[in-house]
Amino acid sequence: PPPTSSTVVPPSLPPYFIKGSIIQLADGELKRVEDLKTEDFIQSAEISSELKIDSSTVERIEGSHTSPNFAVVQFSVGEHRAQVSVEVLVEYPFFVFGQGWSSCCPDRTTQLLELPCTKLSVGDVCISLTLKNLR
């Protein structure tokens, strides 16, 4: 069976997901969070000496046992298809390849952050990061 790990994201929304937040790409360019494109992440990772983009496919989304405000999203990460589950607030946005920001509850994301967002679904391929030369 593939290795499994689990990550818990802190129970608050980071400020950089609020619409209008200024994000610096690896080449120094500044963009608003709502204007980011898939290519911005890919190009930034290419410049980075430590980080590389991995594809993380959503395999399962279920409610958290801890709180109704949380969801557990299970990803299959990278070429090794390692199973990683992440417990996040339902409004926590992930960036889906070719699509943009998506969350388990896009209505809440739009309400709380004003960040345009679509519904995160099983089969979506999200952008995630791993270390280069990790072995």
Partner: peptide, 19 residues
Amino acid sequence: VPVFPWHSLVPFLAPTQSD
């Protein structure tokens, strides 16, 4: 105005490598 690095927006999912 605060400026945030691009990689802070991306979840860091580093699975244990089995090989």
